[in-house]
Amino acid sequence: MFEAKLIQGNLIKKIMEGLKDLVTEANFDLSPGGVSLQAMDSSHVALVALMLRGDAFENYRCDRPRSIGMNLVNLSKVLKCAGNDDTMTLKADDTQNNITLVFESQAEDKYAEVQMELMDIDSEHLGIPDNTYDAIVKMPSAQFSQIVKDLSSIGDTVTVSVTKDGITFSTSGDVGTAHITCKQNTSMEKEADHTTVNLEHPVTLTFALRYFVTFAKSTSLSHQMSISLSKELPVMVEYAMGDMGHIRFYLAPKIDD
């Protein structure tokens, strides 16, 4: 038996916003420690890794580790039945091939129960090495979102360059070229507004911009996000959800032919 209740049920809605444009179906790995997911996009260029700790839930029960496959388009439809302030309970009986989602209003005056079929999904699990990155930049997630959206109307690829002076996003297209630099800035009162650059070695990498736009759909999960870069390695874009868990995106760079 698996059962987990989230007081802030809309957390799952927010997570799905970031997932559904990247992968259409995925296995959720349920274990006593929590819920995790790893899935690649169909072109095997980007990967999403989600982790939600068991203690992020109000009551969490997972009797045995199990993978449950879900169609994320269908899950998004089901989640429309949940109000933004509703609690959300997920229930899956080990002997059944379905999951039950229960949405309850905070005032306990509305109760919705939806059952959704599970599916068998063949998925490749990749081992992601624990990298020491050349550069880690933390910045407000809204700012990152705005930058990648603005640049995506100018070009298709983005060159990300980190030096001790800051992080620069550059693109070019028919319209012209654009460079946006964010310098380290810790003068604001709120830490979530800070931009910090942790640099071991200067690094420059080029990526397909549209993936960054997709990753930025997770902006509502966290005020801060981080970009971790190493020479000739996939970039890691992370949105940490406090001590509840995280969603991480990996994107393979463009390389010289």
Partner: peptide, 13 residues
């Protein structure tokens, strides 16, 4: 430039 795939960097586990 060409787009690399993730499997070039991460191994299947």
């Amino acid at each position: 430039m060409s787009q690399a795939k993730l499997t070039k960097f991460f191994t299947k586990s």
